[in-house]
Design a protein around this nucleic acid. Structure first.
Length: 724
DNA sequence: CTATATTGTCATTCC
DNA sequence: GGGGAATGACAATAT
């Protein structure tokens, strides 16, 4: 019960204070179970002298309101809170549930120059518009590919896909029975249903193995080979990259999270099928009947040897690129350092085996990942990200991240990392003392030792923290040398020792050991039951230092008087027969016995009680001040941990954004290529002004443009087919 | 001598 | 109700 009491009254409350300061949601159980040093210390409370924390006293630490103005720079707190709010803002990166990873490409045929057409055709993104940037080039490409002036793409996520899915049982049966794209196209008429695998097939056909689709290079779409005459010409030389990089800045991050979540969820749904089917379809020659149907890829005029296995879904194709783009995210080393990661990453990581096996066999990763993007594995070493990314985040953010990476992953020493982080902190206005800031949050020991080794401010703090706590070995030794018989170890002494022996406290700090305080009272460690003379004690104890130097010319009695406290003098004046040490530190029973043995008058008894009260209160005040400082230190430590976490989250955010953009880009290109290659029964390309592609769980549907999403539940069974 | 930091003390509250 | 811890506030002292 005592433990629980302490736990809840002190540990949890302090922990809650810290969390409330930062607004970051943490799994308390996890930290408790893992016994992470900093949090454990916070939760379990300090093991030093101050073990009893009253709830009402904690108000003083809430949000730093109660920080003593003399003890802490309040600006630190405000700055800290500001930074913590920034960290809190990262919390908004929660990945929403399934949403649309779809976008709608719409371009007005007649008014190419009107409305949004100043820079060309526009793409209306149905979900956040993060791909607006792709608009110009994409629409232009579509325009050329479709041979029409109006093109609408709609890639709908799985939420809307169910509604879009054709109701016709015949279609369903066909779709289930065969992955053949052309077959579906033929049977569905105007509504073209393509499996995502076929999309991949298309893409693969467009980008044969060994060739890296260069989406980001200017004129990258020139590689988007199309069987028709007009398609290559129109798609060639249209840079997809330039618009991307221009409009990435207003990127909606939440939208991107939604997108990637959608992708991952889809991947999660399909990954099992993929894993099963890949083994069957790895062999390019393993073409089942559906693959070899009339209107299959072969009908695209593409070499069969370049076919991707049909069961690889588009989403599955996207994920490997993510995983390959972000090795750190799936790097077990990151787990080892306790980096918390969004759940979605863990989920995807759990599927990584399937993914890797799948795409390792089909080399889809390489297919989808242009070399420069793959090279982002070395993001940690390059301060500046590739072009489209550089505009996404502030340069300072990049610097921060890269610096952090250097510190975290490049084998920097903790001191170096701490220096880096301090530099990072400095520009944010938070001047956390490096001496107090461990490079590793979970390594307070190191921080303490390193702090003791370097900074002058640490010395300042150490002296502060050591105020009234000269219970270290040196002090004891000094007292022993003075002839003090340390037979009595009062509670205070033990508690203080505990406090400093706590690894999380200030052990090993040289400054602490060298502090020689001018304590008026004989502190417990220095005290003893010996009836040593107060004069000799106080004079010898305190006069041998600077103070002794200052008063060296004075007679011994002056020295004693100067060094004695008022209560000492009062005690001498009142002829108190025992030392103040006894008065203060004796247990109450022994103290009462002592008083009973002596025949003291009321004035003497009153003085003794006052001495005891003041002495105890003095120690309590010292403990209180130390506790206050310790709380501040812990809060600073927490701030640094959060800053570190913030940098890590920013890094992950950047990587996710990059993955999302790449995925969208690939889907966009794929859709563009697919639409360009669709042909009606007469071999003519579909007009982009009349049709658009809609992605569903069962494939890709070629929808009439005038159909709304709701109407798509009963789509026209317009003939769909691929030419050739 | 002044400003600041440190330390002691008191009052109060709570356990 | 007493003892004592905790702590804000203030005073005394040191630097």
């Amino acid at each position: 019960m005592l433990y629980l009491k302490k736990y809840f009254t002190e540990g949890l409350i302090q922990f809650t204070i810290l969390l409330s300061l930062i607004g970051v949601r943490l799994d308390l159980d996890t930290y408790l179970n893992n016994q992470l040093p900093p949090l454990r210390e916070i939760i379990l409370g300090p093991s030093s002298a101050y073990t009893q924390t009253q709830f009402h006293n904690l108000r003083n630490t809430l949000d730093g309101y109660g920080i003593h103005p003399k003890s802490v720079d309040l600006d630190h707190f405000f700055t800290t809170r500001r930074l913590l709010n920034q960290v809190r803002s990262l919390d908004h990166l929660r990945v929403p549930s399934t949403e649309l990873s779809a976008w709608l490409v719409h371009r007005d045929p007649e008014t190419v120059v009107s409305a949004t057409s100043q820079s060309g055709p526009s793409i209306a993104l149905d979900n956040g518009g993060s791909l607006e940037d792709v608009n110009n080039s994409e629409a232009s490409a579509m325009r050329g590919a479709g041979g029409a002036s109006e093109t609408t793409y709609s890639l709908s996520g799985e939420d809307s896909l169910g509604a879009v899915a054709p109701e016709d049982s015949q279609e369903q049966g066909e779709r289930e029975s065969s992955d053949d794209l052309s077959k579906e196209l033929t049977s569905l008429g105007a509504q073209t249903s393509l499996s995502l695998q076929e999309c991949l097939r298309l893409l693969e056909a467009t980008f044969p193995f060994g060739e890296e689709p260069e989406f980001q290079a200017t004129g990258s779409t020139s590689q988007l080979r199309a069987p028709t005459e007009e398609t290559p010409s129109t798609s060639q030389g249209i840079p997809l990259q330039a618009p991307l990089s221009q409009s990435d800045t207003p990127l909606d991050l939440e939208q991107q999270w939604q997108d990637i979540m959608s992708i991952m969820e889809l991947q999660d749904m399909e990954v099992n099928n993929t894993a099963v089917n890949v083994s069957m379809n790895n062999d390019p020659n393993n073409n089942n009947a559906s693959t070899t149907d009339s209107a299959t890829i072969g009908s695209f005029g593409l070499p069969r040897s370049t076919l991707i296995n049909q069961d690889v879904s588009l989403h599955q194709a996207s994920l490997p690129s993510c995983s390959q783009d972000f090795p750190p995210l799936f790097n077990p080393e990151l787990d080892s350092i306790g980096v918390q990661r969004p759940t979605l990453v863990r989920l995807s990581s759990s599927n990584s085996s399937n993914i890797n096996s799948t795409f390792g066999a089909t080399n889809l990763t390489g297919l989808f990942l242009p070399p420069p993007l793959n090279s982002t594995t070395n993001l940690t070493t390059t301060p500046v990200l590739p072009d489209p990314f550089s505009s996404l985040l502030e340069e300072s953010m990049l610097d921060e991240i890269s610096l952090l990476d250097l510190a975290m992953e490049e084998g920097f020493s903790q001191d170096q990392a701490s220096q880096l982080e301090d530099e990072l902190d400095s520009d944010s206005g938070l001047s956390l003392d490096s001496s107090h800031s461990p490079a590793s949050p979970s390594n307070s020991d190191t921080s303490c030792s390193s702090a003791a080794s370097s900074s002058s401010t640490s010395a300042t703090f150490s002296e502060e923290g050591a105020v009234g706590y000269s219970t270290d070995s040196e002090a004891a030794t000094a007292e022993a040398e003075e002839g003090a018989v340390g037979g009595y170890q009062p509670e205070y002494s033990k508690l203080c020792r505990m406090g400093y022996q706590d690894p999380s406290q200030f052990h090993g700090i040289p400054q602490l050991e060298s502090v020689n305080h001018n304590h008026t009272y004989n502190l417990p460690l220095a005290s003893s039951y010996s009836e040593r003379s107060q004069l000799s004690t106080s004079c010898s104890k305190k006069g041998r230092d600077k103070q002794m130097q200052q008063t060296k010319l004075q007679p011994p009695q002056d020295c004693v008087d100067r060094q004695s406290s008022r209560d000492d003098r009062r005690a001498r004046a009142m002829d108190i027969p025992f030392s103040n040490d006894k008065i203060i530190n004796l247990p109450v029973e022994e103290f009462n016995e002592l008083l009973a043995k002596q025949h003291l008058n009321e004035d003497q008894l009153s003085l003794i009680r006052d001495i005891r009260r003041r002495g105890k209160n003095k120690m309590a005040a010292q403990n209180c001040r130390k506790r206050k400082l310790d709380t501040i230190l812990k809060l600073e430590e927490g701030v640094q941990d959060l800053q570190r976490e913030k940098a890590q989250l920013l890094k992950e955010k950047m990587e996710y954004c990059k993955c999302i953009r790449q995925t969208k880009q690939k889907v966009q290109s794929l859709s563009q290529e697919l639409f360009a290659q669709l042909r009606d029964e007469e071999g003519r390309p579909y007009s982009a002004s009349e049709y658009f592609l809609q992605y569903g769980p069962d494939g890709v549907l070629l929808m009439p443009l005038n159909m709304t999403t709701e109407q798509s539940n009963k789509p026209d069974k317009k003939q769909k087919d691929k030419k050739k």
